[in-house]
């Protein structure tokens, strides 16, 4: 599953509509699956991110929470990590990964 959930290089206002569509599909896929595993998204390719990109990830996180799941961003690129921490969304990475490791 992880292989399918990969964020691209650009996660900014210019591509956020595209990524919103992709995220909705990922969530819909999860609806058919059992369990409450986090949605694991590969984030190491992100080279550019802005507030809109982080907001999208937060919205994705909210949708998942509604379904009793969580978002786990895997190996976030430094630029994404910095952006998430700046906007107080560092937990999407660190805590979830910790759970992942612990699991």
């Amino acid at each position: 599953m992880t292989d399918e959930h990969v964020l691209g290089a650009d996660l900014t206002i210019y591509s956020v509509a595209h990524w919103a569509e992709r995220c909705r599909l990922w969530v819909m896929d999860l609806d058919g699956a059992a369990g409450d595993l986090p949605l694991q998204v590969q984030a190491d390719r992100v080279e550019e991110v802005d507030g809109a990109g982080v907001q999208l990830l937060l919205a994705l996180s909210r949708s998942l929470e509604q379904r009793g799941r969580r978002l786990a961003l895997l190996r976030p690129s430094p630029v994404l990590l910095k952006a998430l921490q700046r906007l107080g969304a560092g937990d999407l990475v660190v805590q979830q990964l910790a759970q992942e490791v612990g699991a």
Binding site: V16, A17, A20, R24, V27, A52, L56, A59, R62, S63
Partner: peptide, 8 residues
Amino acid sequence: ELEAMDPE
């Protein structure tokens, strides 16, 4: 939530 959001 994602479903209801205009990402822009």
